[in-house]
């Protein structure tokens, strides 16, 4: 017997002055291998054309569809209803600006993070069309790629105690981004530059170590290891005999 699933979905349209938040119920017969991408589209096509949510690749790659699914931030496209109870509660991610129902504005926030961290290769060099690429060890390339895999879905900051209290906190995604550039030899920023950027309460020392980020990251990025590494490096940099950083910061 197929289950009848009850969806309780958060509804609110911030662009409509008459709208106030509530939870709306929809019912759907479960079919084999039904995921939330299909389920939400069936609801919108057949029951309620006004329902707002975001999907792009529907393949777990683009990071558009993170939402709170029974209290946990994760990607809707790769969540199967068969892994959930008969009642499924859906809320938009907290922390981000609400655009309507399950849709939030992750794009603007993530652009802000890229600008704050200047998350690009800092170099004095210029690209020469005629010369071969600089050599890189394949292991290092893989290591950079491992940290580069973040899809900016926003699950980590939505599940983060610090981010939900300090809106300026860079979050796991921001600190992971920094770690990616730290190990990249093409980026000429030195440890002191990193120290200035992340040795703050908005940065690596704001984390209180609950590590929900690591639990919810859909890409299984090893955020705990990354944090430890960045913190250790920052403390070493601050304490190094040549450095005046800790003095200026105390």
């Amino acid at each position: 017997m197929a289950r009848k699933i009850t969806f309780k979905i958060f509804r609110f349209n911030p662009y409509d002055e008459g709208s106030s938040p509530f939870q709306q119920e929809y019912k759907l017969e479960e079919t084999p291998r039904l995921n939330l991408f299909s389920a939400l589209n069936i609801i919108r096509d057949e029951q309620d054309p006004t329902l707002m949510f975001d999907f792009v690749c529907r393949a777990g790659i683009c990071g558009s569809c993170a939402m709170m699914i029974n209290g946990r931030p994760t990607l809707a496209c790769r969540t199967l209803t068969s892994d959930l109870p008969e009642t499924i509660e859906l809320f938009p991610l907290p922390f981000f600006k609400m655009l309507g129902d399950l849709s939030v504005d992750t794009g603007v926030w993530f652009r802000g993070i890229s600008e704050r961290l200047e998350s690009w290769i800092h170099t004095d060099g210029t690209f020469d069309t005629k010369s071969v690429e600089k050599l890189m060890d394949n292991e290092l390339a893989n290591e950079i790629y491992e940290a580069d895999r973040c899809i900016e879905c926003g699950s980590c900051v939505s599940g983060c105690a610090t981010a939900n209290v300090y809106p300026d906190f860079l979050g796991a995604t921001g600190l992971n981004r920094i770690a990616r550039y730290m190990i990249d030899p093409r980026d000429m920023r030195d440890n002191e530059a990193w120290f200035e950027l992340v040795s703050t309460y908005e940065g690596v020392f704001g984390c209180i170590g609950m590590m929900a980020c690591e639990d919810v990251c859909p890409k299984n990025i090893p955020l705990l290891d990354t944090f430890s590494r960045v913190r250790r490096l920052m403390i070493e940099t601050g304490l190094s005999s040549k450095s005046t950083l800790l003095k200026t910061h105390s």
């Binding site: 290769i121 690429e133 890189m136 394949n138 990249d184």
Partner: peptide, 18 residues
């Protein structure tokens, strides 16, 4: 080939020959 090298310059971690 120029475009691939350019993207390497801008930070793409292409897999490398071992």
């Amino acid at each position: 080939p120029i475009a691939m090298r350019e993207m390497a310059f801008y930070g793409v971690p292409w897999n490398r020959v071992k």
